[in-house]
Design a binder for these strands. Structure first.
Lengths: 159, 159
DNA sequence: AGTGATACTGAGAGTCGTTCTCAACCAGTG
DNA sequence: CACTGGTTGAGAACGACTCTCAGTATCACT
């Protein structure tokens, strides 16, 4: 793992970090690449991928696997948080509601794992998509293309 | 979504389901393909992928994204459950400890999402890898190759 | 300023997991 | 028996990502 001190802040890396910081959504690497090219048209995709990996490994960004196809997503919000992904528009919103420590400890005890972290993501319909699916006029809502994330685990109660 | 009644149980599909049911681990599609070929050598990879997608969409299997590279994993245990993934050997074990319903309801309320399900996965070291990493003689533990899943969110307490 | 060592970059090729295409096949139905 | 429509297998195609490599920038010394 590259150490923090060892990291040169080149213009390209700055540009990638800027884009990530400015992003309100959770862009894929390809989206980051596209946005960075607006300010640094000569940057290569390999540099963007390398830089994203570097930012992740030095703790300046988070990598997310939201299960929509293959593309990893990136998040400059490095505080521990989770996500809710909309089955309609594919949008992901941040959730700041940690799993109770007691539960983690209990799972560690039962499984024997030394647990260092976890990923939690919820699936469902965002408020916009709920409104437009009950609406006969299907207002597309906006952000992304429709992603067909089939529910991978079904909730066993209320919701 | 293909309906259950609509599903022909061809020999190929039976073979894939058999392999999945017999698997104690969480095989990737490529692993399923390899195992199915032992009994049905003429099967094509497209058929395996198609069948896995079919099984998932009809609720006969679960698709997992354990974040180790790109490959999706499959699980014939369709009951709601979560996973703990070992950073050492890449192995995933089942965790049967649901998130409290109250927490899900609270998140639904706060985010406005109509939550239909969730995915929770823990990361850490399995008992075997803990033993072999403290051991000077690094007993490899066994199942898989070493996967370098860099921690994507760090736990904020005890563990 | 000159010199070498080292890190970084961009282009393009390569890899990997997955999906698509398409002709051939098979199982029912009329 | 011919028709119809779902299913199959081979291979091409695709998207996301990584690797390779020559060229460039930056640093530490002199």
């Amino acid at each position: 793992m590259t150490d923090l001190a060892d990291l040169r802040l080149t213009p390209q890396r700055m540009a990638v970090l800027e884009v990530l910081r400015a992003a309100a959504d959770h862009p894929t690497a390809a989206e980051v690449y596209e946005r960075v090219r607006r300010s640094s048209p000569r940057i290569g995709s390999a540099t963007v991928y390398r830089t994203l990996a570097l930012l992740v490994s030095t703790g300046r960004a988070l990598e997310l696997n939201l299960g929509d196809g293959a593309a990893a997503r990136y998040d400059a919000n490095t505080c521990r948080h989770d996500h809710a992904v909309c089955d309609g528009c594919g949008r992901a919103v941040d959730i700041d509601h940690p799993v109770p420590d007691g539960m983690v400890a209990e799972i560690a005890r039962r499984s024997g794992f030394a647990i260092t972290g976890y990923d939690l993501q919820f699936r469902g319909m965002c408020p916009d998509c709920q409104a437009s699916s009950s609406d006969p006029a299907r207002a597309a809502g906006g952000t992304g293309p429709t992603v067909n994330t089939h529910a991978k685990g079904v909730l066993h109660a209320e919701a």
